[in-house]
Structure formats: C-alpha cells, structure tokens
C-alpha cells in the first residue's frame, strides 16, 4: 500500500539524516581533505578547502616506503581468505548437505572459539612464532589470520549453502548427471554468490585486524595496520602525511565495503539477521 508522503515530512527527514550522516562521516572526510593540504596548512586551524597538493602522498611513498606495507596487507588479507575458504568450503558443504545431529553443536563450538580473547594466547603464540622463525613473516601472519577468521567463514558459507535446495541435486541425479556434472553445472553456479560475499567480508576483516598484525610483525611483514600505528610516535606526528597514509590505507576497503553492505549484515550476524 503506497501512501502519499508529504513533501514537508520528507524534507525534515532528509535534513536530519544528512546532518547525522555528515557528523558521522566527518572524521573520514576531514582526513581526506587534510591529506590534500601541505604540512603548515594542516595545523593552521579549521579549514575545509585544501590547496590540493599531492606532496604528502609523494612523501609517504618516498620517505616511508608506503608500497611495502600496502603489498603486505594485500598478500595477508587475500592469502588468508583463500586459505580459509579452501578449508571451510568442504566443511560448510558437508554440514549443509549431510547434517548429523551433532552439526549444530559443532557450529556453536566453532563460534565459541571466537570468544577466546586473543590476548590470552599472546604469550604462547609469540613464543611459538619466535622459536619457529615465523615472527615478522607473511607466512606466519597468514596462518594466524586464517585461524582467526575460519569460524566466521565456515558459518557464513553454511548459511548460504543451506539455502541451496537439496531436491535440485536429486533431480539432477535422476536425470543422470555424474558427480562431476552435478558439481560443475548445478552446484557451482548456485554456490558462487555466497562464496564471493564470504570472500569479500573476510578480506575486509583481515585487512583491518589490528592485534596480531601489530604484535607479530616489526618491519618485513608489517601490513598497513602496523604501519599506521607507527605514526603514533612523536616523530611521526605530521598531520598531512598521517592523513595521506590513512586515506590510502582505508580507501580500497571503504569502496569494497560500500559494495558489500547487504552481505555484511548477514555475514557478521551469522545469518541471524537478514
């Protein structure tokens, strides 16, 4: 039932929503604006119109070698996501299509591993990493991020796979489809969207993970989280450079996030809210 909404009511809602949105978005907006200022300009006081200089971006690359942590972030987030999918797809598949009476318990147990505070195992993990030479390596951190996000990946995939009707498989089998044909022509096309959204969300989570990535790296494998955290030291306090580095660090994930709004709700609530 469509109702005529008065223009006045719509105008009020619009103005209120835009004010709220601009306040919430302001820190990000101001970071982007500041990144386009020169250093003296950045600390001159409140000013929304920058001189549009790119000098901070250039300095961040030439003085601090921005590209290196950026590549580390890419390798770690994509690598750990692919690794987690490799392990999680079969698991979620088997739980969705041949559930036993223990399936629900296994899922809840997997989720409960997320309840364990990371800091509680900081010491053993640090010592294991030190003794096996995994400290400050991409390999070590990729393994860590895979383990941390594995429960979420399994859960997300499970909620997607569960919605694929089992009867379709039976129908395909009746029509004489081989196991291979069943997977390639029937299941894959239905599973791909779910796997893609899981992948997207997991890359976002891995990119922004800021406990293990900071504690287990120093220079070689340090991703953007550790790189930006190093700006907190007194000698790193340059507003425009900090803004440029921050803008570069959040831009790719911000854009990915905008595209995955819908899946985000589903993924992060383990299918409890759709």
């Amino acid at each position: 039932m469509a109702r005529a909404v008065s223009t006045r009511r719509m105008a009020v809602a619009t103005i209120a929503a835009w004010i709220v949105a601009l306040i919430i978005f302001f820190p990000i907006l101001y970071t982007i604006i500041t990144s386009l200022k020169s250093e003296p300009e950045a600390i001159q006081g409140f000013n929304l119109i920058p001189s549009f200089t790119l000098e901070s971006y250039v300095t961040v690359q030439t003085q601090r070698d921005y590209f290196k942590p950026f590549m580390n972030s890419v390798v770690l987030s994509v690598g750990s996501t692919l690794l987690a999918l490799l392990v999680a797809v079969p698991a979620a598949w088997s739980m969705a299509f041949s559930p036993t009476n223990r399936t629900k318990d296994i899922l809840m147990w997997m989720l409960s591993t997320k309840m364990m505070p990371a800091v509680a195992v900081l010491v053993p993990i640090y010592l294991i990493f030190r003794d096996t030479g995994l400290l400050d390596t991409r390999l070590g951190l990729t393994i860590m991020l895979t383990l941390i996000n594995l429960p979420i990946v399994v859960w997300m995939l499970y909620t997607y796979f569960r919605e694929i009707p089992g009867e379709i498989l039976e129908a395909a089998r009746m029509d004489g489809a081989t196991l291979w044909g069943e997977i390639v022509y029937v299941l894959a096309p239905m599973a791909v969207p779910g796997i893609a959204s899981t992948m997207l969300l997991n890359i976002i989570l891995a990119w922004n993970e800021a406990f293990w990535t900071i504690r287990l790296t120093t220079t070689n494998a340090a991703p953007l989280t550790a790189f930006i955290a190093s700006f907190s030291s007194p000698q790193g306090l340059f507003w425009a450079k900090l803004s440029a580095a921050s803008t570069l660090a959040i831009a790719p994930i911000l854009i990915m996030g905008w595209f995955s709004q819908k899946q985000l709700v589903r993924g992060l609530t383990f299918g409890a809210v759709k």
Partner: peptide
Amino acid sequence: QPMWGQGIVRIMIISPFFVMPPVAALVW
C-alpha cells in the same frame, strides 16, 4: 523514513566500520 539521497546517507553512515582501528584512533 523516506528521504532524498538515502543511498549516499547510508554510505556515509556505514563508512566508519571499514576504517582500521589504528587509523580511526589516530585521526580522532
């Protein structure tokens, strides 16, 4: 509520969630 520019408003409001913790903290 119905409004103009809802898509952009949504995008702006959801954005902080995608900002990595060190960036959020240092910017603030």
